[in-house]
Design a protein around this nucleic acid. Sequence first.
DNA 1: GCCGTTTTCGGCCCGACTGTTTTCAGTCG
Length: 582
Amino acid sequence: MSVRNEELAALFEEFAALLEAQDVEYKPRAYRQAAENIRSHPEPVADLARRGGTDAVKEVNRVGDAIASKVVEYVETGEIEELEELRAELPVDMAALTSVEGVGPKTVGTLYYELGVRTLDDLEAAARAEEIREVPGFGAKTEENILANLDFARQSNERQLLSRARPLADEIQRHFADVAAVGRSEVAGSLRRWKPTIGDVDLLVASDDPEAVVEAFTGWEDADAVIEAGPTKASVRSAGIRVDLRVVAPEEFGAALQHFTGSRDHNISVRDRAIERGLKVNEYGVFDVSDVDDPDAGQRVGERLACETEADVYAAIDLPLVPPELREDRGEVEAAAEDRLPDLIEESDVRGDLHVHTTWSDGRYSVREMVEAAEERGYDYVNVSDHATGPGMVGGVGLSDDELEEQLAEVREVGDDADIEVFAGVEANVGEDGSVSVGDALLEQLDCVVASPHSALDGDGTERLVRAAEHPEVDVIGHPTGRMLNQRSGLDIDVSTVATAAAEANTALEINASPSRLDLSGGAVKLAIEQGATVVVDTDAHSPSNFDLIRYGVHTARRGWAEVGDVLNAWETDDVRAFLER
DNA sequence: GCCGTTTTCGGCCCGACTGTTTTCAGTCG
């Protein structure tokens, strides 16, 4: 069983917290940044360690000799000696304890040394016994807050899917629409960057009367609890999701939006570039501090160059506007500086969907209904791709070759009546050995064959997907890793290897737009495109309303730097047909 | 611990809020 990036990231986050608890400076930040970059690395870092040792692991941004050798040590031995030593000195359940709102590494350290608190249960017992308020630097209020936040920490440490967070953000914005003090309001943070899962919802509001906005926010009917509320900033919990509000002056909205959209690492790159130019960037604007003795003397020191719009902020450091989806410190600042940012695909560029189900398998609408829905959306083409029977298909969902043959007749008939191109397809299963679960004779009759892994979804899937991609009748590899967000991480794949094979075989790699999948991920899409592969954004629709999920897929494609030319279903019908026939 | 068109040594993003304090540490984003 291979080591997952998530597991490595958690280790280094624990490392960072243990160091921070002991008042170590700077190292915690280095460990946290490394952890974050390992987590979001599109390929298993453990594989890098096995294949190329520390030098290969150092390819990960912000990972140097020391952390790389710890990765190798962990992959080889299952342990990191230094981490074990730190754990021995501070034997606490760091991840659980710091998941309590308001409890950080320093607090964990103090409560362990003063009261012997090691677990959430210890923490609750100490709070109930009113022991925490006796510790120097703590008081009754802190103790109450810990008790109030304990239950929430116990029940939920999952990140939220976009499909929950987006509608919640929309809901608050509707609430704000009736508040006179609210000027412009925008979603910021990871939600605006369309990360597949988000920790909280960040909202930014422009107003000359911030306190009225905070009041309207904390008084929002769906706010279950107020976490904090100051003059310009407040946080509430709603439906188990933390929502952070920040209110800024209208003339500083652009600088604030840039700041609160992040990512943290992107902003560090932006600030580094500003520092090179004698400038300072913060949430209030870009300032020329070259003639200022102490640039850190206040929030608005020096001559302000920009702040009204995000474009002004980037222009002040000689960059074009960087789209939010690219702001992950994956080379976008360098690309912007060299004027080679991609011309990203947009939702309106999508011309069809190549992965759609009907009542023939587990869809809830007929072939005709799904085709009509695609027509109504203004699509030029749609591929009917019901499940074939095979590995991973349970409960009689998948169709036999004979049944597929029957369905083919119906799809052709509907296609004859339709104003759009109707491709006859299938979603076949990729077996553990990379074989495809439908007979070649039938595959040859079909226009567009999607092949997806549905079983044995762990371990290394590279060879398996390469073999499927090289099958002459396969046109699309559906949800390549089979991951389900928050549930299973799916196959480990060497994206470059799979993408290279797919590019040579004229097989497209799917970006499955279902919010619980988003598979491939944005990082993997970027790698795939760099290898020359074509991607396709599909909704895997089981009903007409599912076609709306396309936006999650398009934004994932944008996170992968995809342009129209990279995305099969942004092409015209004839070009798609030509690709499928190759 | 990481990193380099100011550096291989000496810096490290930066500000709001809270609770505990008489000026600040910890947490969070």
